[in-house]
Design a protein around this nucleic acid. Structure first.
Lengths: 229, 229
DNA sequence: GCCGAACCGTAACGTACGGTACGGTGCGAT
DNA sequence: ATCGCACCGTACCGTACGTTACGGTTCGGC
């Protein structure tokens, strides 16, 4: 191990996930596991023991506790990164499949232990602005989803299958129809009973509802609320 | 001051908000203000100093730190309790007004500093199950809204204005259309730009969308997704 | 005027934890 | 062989904070 993640000497800085040693990734995976188990309550000593490394190494690599947490969030984010694929001119079937797929994946993500744990610590830290965990989580969660979904929406509009003025507003409606109260309930410790089966039907229902609102449909004046807000 | 809130001697217990002295309410209001200012980071010493009371009194009244936080959440919850009014046989105008009103109020609540602070601390505590702050917040937030809204939905159905099979599912859709990504973004420190004006238009948009999905409308087969999920 | 209860302010205690220092080990380079 | 380096394990330090203890003050009841 020759490189330190921190730049600038004494100050803890951000770590590029692609510049991580395998060993460092192991440590961050341990932190993730620990976060799921005991939330933000983890101590540097616990991390060091569970990761079989010394605290000195932790501080050398990640600067301080916040740096370790930030690197962990970045590391998890880098693991789920997906490249958006622009579909040229979809038909209704493929559009529905696409939307349902995104809805399914999103529900699976927000219902996963890791996502819940990460969002919890990010929410806790969002209060006192020491770090920007909230921004990172948001950037790799909700905003990343929007970036991947908007090309699909635009393609649907170009193909005449969707009617909307502002892709952002359309996306946020889709987001609301998919997530509903699930995420906040999970974060607050409630268990809305998300199984594989309900995720499937929820994704289908959200997609159908979205199409009912934004689908090209001569019988309904949808433009009343499809504009920018 | 003669009564202690705790029952059972050494253990910290829950406090009925209606059995609170004015002085105790003052203290809890101070805690609320402090929570907004510095989040979960508040210390008993800070509370005592800001509330001009002794730490001994805090512990006598509320048992321990968690008891104080729990009492604070309960106290805030008791302040916003509203009695649901069952409307007999509404017309479309009053139904729309009702729904828009709930949407407006809900958006105002989740965008308020107090709600954000309270939800943040509840989310933090939801990880390690020491207390049930998450359940309390949920019970007085999302579930209270459902309890107040369902009579309205049922009345709308009885009047033939709404078509749905399960009120819970209909409510969750309404919830999703209103809240969308607002709450999670606020909790994570993002600022989605909720002003009085946008809240107004958002509430109207959500209501229109909800009516498009669940409103009685001959031209559209809505029952495809209006069932129970 | 006196007593006791409730309360304030503060000092004190114990502990947990973030952060640092230091001795020891394995290993590649020379 | 041995030097340097990255790392492990652990002891250690300082501090912040939850919790308790205690002396002093106010105030209602007799």
């Amino acid at each position: 191990m020759e490189t330190e993640i921190n730049q600038g000497g004494a100050e803890a800085q951000n770590a590029q996930p692609d510049a991580l040693t395998d060993r460092q990734k192991d440590v961050l995976d341990t932190v993730l596991r620990l976060l799921v188990e005991e939330g933000d309550h983890l101590s540097m000593t616990t991390v060091a023991r569970r990761a079989s490394c010394s605290k000195e190494t932790l501080y050398k690599w990640f600067g301080d506790r916040d740096g370790l947490l930030t690197a962990t969030v970045r590391w998890q984010a880098s693991k789920v990164r997906v490249t958006p694929v622009d579909q040229g001119n979809p038909d209704l079937i493929s559009l529905v499949e696409s939307l349902e797929g995104y809805a399914r994946d999103w529900l699976k993500v927000i219902a996963s232990d890791t996502s819940i744990a990460l969002n919890r610590v990010a929410v806790s830290h969002a209060g006192s602005g020491k770090d920007n965990l909230g921004a990172i989580v948001l950037e790799n969660g909700r905003f990343a989803l929007a970036k991947r979904l908007k090309p699909v929406l635009d393609a649907g509009r170009r193909a005449g299958l969707l009617v909307f003025e502002d892709a952002e507003t359309a996306f946020r409606t889709f987001f609301g129809l998919v997530a509903r109260d699930v995420q906040i309930r999970l974060l607050l410790g409630d268990w809305p009973g998300l199984t594989e089966a309900t995720i499937e039907t929820d994704a289908a229902r959200a997609t159908q509802q979205f199409l009912a609102l934004y689908g090209q449909n001569p019988g309904r004046k949808a433009t009343d609320f499809n504009g920018k807000d």
